[in-house]
């Protein structure tokens, strides 16, 4: 083990909830954790499997409807655990379908209310039209770029902070200019792309929190060469701002 310590990254439901390249977030986090000089263990958590003994950072992605129904029971079983970890400051990044399930509820087209974990104060309603396209946000981590692809329209509770403000794109619901939600060290967002590789500032913020949880010391980063990510990010932002 390296002197800095070991961070365990848990990918929640990689088979069911990892569509449109969300796996790239796990690849990115693991690579950056190692490049920052920490050991990284990636734990894939599947429905019905025992809960991992160590968990310092969580990633969850989008899925098909069939995928969501497959993980619902496991999520309910582990709901208290996840709520406790979130309250303790364990960092989590939840994309699209898992973002919705981290909210209070998802209300389907026909009015059926499916309860969520309530870690984020958001409610999502199913819609018939999809919100698809490139998206740019202003966030506390600087401008963030990605690709959204969702039919659910999400509304924030009164005290709930968004993850970002929409510069180009639809965001939570296409009307109020917000995107995603943030509470404790939990980020919920609709951004695929995937979100983390091209936005390393967000990735490192999650890793910094995870390092503290894992080691009890503050994050000791290494200088990384992010010039490729910087080029990819700024070029895409410039294109999207020009066209859309």
């Amino acid at each position: 083990m390296t002197a800095k310590g070991r961070i365990t990254l848990v990918h929640l439901y990689p088979r069911e909830m990892s569509i449109y390249g969300d796996l790239g977030n796990t690849r990115c986090l693991a690579a950056r954790i190692r490049r920052h000089g920490y050991d990284c263990v990636v734990h894939d958590h599947h429905p019905g499997m025992p809960w991992p003994e160590q968990a310092h950072l969580f990633m969850g992605g989008g899925g098909q409807d069939s995928g969501q129904s497959r993980v619902q029971d496991d999520l309910a079983v582990n709901a208290d655990r996840l709520r406790g970890l979130a309250a303790d400051g364990v960092p989590m990044v939840m994309i699209c379908g898992m973002y919705q399930m981290f909210g209070h509820a998802f209300i389907t087209h026909d009015g059926v209310e499916l309860p969520g974990l309530g870690i984020l104060d958001v409610t999502t309603r199913g819609q018939s039209t999809r919100m698809i396209g490139g998206i740019v946000l202003d966030t506390d981590f600087g401008q963030v770029v990605g690709f959204e692809n969702h039919s659910g329209a999400t509304v924030l509770g009164s005290g709930q902070a968004p993850f970002g403000r929409v510069v180009v794109g639809h965001g939570n619901n296409g009307t109020d200019g917000t995107e995603g939600a943030r509470a404790h060290n939990v980020i919920g967002s609709y951004l695929h792309g995937p979100i983390l590789p091209a936005n390393p500032a967000v990735a490192d913020a999650l890793i910094a929190a995870a390092a503290e949880v894992a080691t009890g010391r503050s994050f000791e980063p290494e200088p990384l060469d992010d010039s490729l990510a910087e080029q990819a990010r700024t070029r895409q932002i410039a294109r999207l701002r020009k066209t859309g």
């Binding site: 449109y20 390249g21 796996l23 690849r27 396209g133 695929h192 792309g193 895409q236 294109r239």
Partner: peptide
Amino acid sequence: GQDVSWLYDVSFESLRGPGVAMTSGVR
């Protein structure tokens, strides 16, 4: 395909040894 996310669902490890000479295109 406007969303290039799918590139992260491909493993490129087989190219690790030989490397890639050039990447091109808008992305």
